[in-house]
């Protein structure tokens, strides 16, 4: 069963046409990987799915759990369970990480008709999760992402993911700038969420992360379109022969 179906998607950033008739189906419970050269449109695709303000959709549709979400506000998509782990998480001075996390978690709980967590309940859960990810607990009290190292930012993204328990998780270059320990911690966090129901979309142009997160399906994105879809064996082919080896579609 498909969780996400993207049909004939044309998307622009300003005057620049980036996605040119992209088709993609993501199955429930599977880990999909999108690989492709720089400038192919990988980040544009992830931004289009979450409704980023930079992206103008010219044509096509994004269907999530049977609902067309192409026109929805970003927060509506988030509340429905779509999560993007940002490549470069932005810093928000003065807003405490814990406060932000609790607001986000409670927004989702409220949306789902669950009772909101009080500060103590939330903090216990957040600390536990942070600990699991090898995060210093003081990062919870600091301003959101402010002055965090690259590794700390990615761990914090993973922390949010674990606390929000989304259904569809997009990981945009989650491995960039991570040392091996951080990479392991982040991967463990991601694997913890693999339950056969959640869908993952891993966007990367290195295969390194794939040693930790086993893909089920591999797609190659080139010049705004998916040019090849195959099983995990494709990773090795790409590793050896590069994207140039793939014929133009």
């Amino acid at each position: 069963m498909n969780m996400v179906e993207i049909k004939d998607l044309y998307a622009n950033i300003g005057d620049k046409k980036i996605l040119k008739g992209l088709n993609l189906e993501l199955q429930e419970g599977k880990v999909h990987v999108i690989m492709g050269p720089n400038g192919a449109g990988k980040s544009t695709l992830s931004k289009a799915i979450v409704g980023h303000y930079d992206i103008e959709i010219e044509n096509g549709s994004i269907v999530y759990k049977g609902e067309d979400i192409t026109e929805l506000e970003p927060e509506e998509r988030a509340l429905k369970g779509i999560f993007l782990s940002f490549q470069n998480p932005v810093e928000v001075p003065g807003v405490s990480n814990a406060y932000f996390l609790r607001t986000a978690v409670n927004a989702k709980r409220k949306y789902e008709g669950k009772e909101e967590l009080n500060a103590a309940e939330f903090l216990r859960k957040a600390k536990e999760t942070a600990n699991f990810l090898g995060m210093k607990p003081e990062l919870l009290n600091r301003s959101l992402n402010e002055g965090f190292s690259g590794g700390e930012k990615k761990r914090n993204e993973t922390l949010q993911m674990l606390l929000l328990e989304p259904d569809f998780i997009i990981l945009d270059e989650i491995d960039s700038g991570l040392d091996i320990d951080a990479l392991r911690a982040v991967s463990e966090g991601i694997n913890k969420l693999k339950d056969g129901k959640r869908t993952f979309l891993v966007i990367t142009h290195y295969s390194r992360i794939l040693d930790y997160i086993k893909p089920d399906v591999v797609h190659v994105l080139k010049d705004g379109k998916i040019v090849k879809t195959a099983g995990s064996e494709l990773v090795e082919v790409l590793e050896k022969e590069g994207y140039a080896a793939l014929g133009e579609s």
């Binding site: 979450v50 932005v90 928000v92």
Partner: peptide
């Protein structure tokens, strides 16, 4: 920044 706003909204917090 639009980027800050978007970050918070992507986490389900309304504008």
């Amino acid at each position: 920044s639009e980027e800050q706003l978007f970050y918070l909204r992507q986490r389900g917090i309304d504008e």
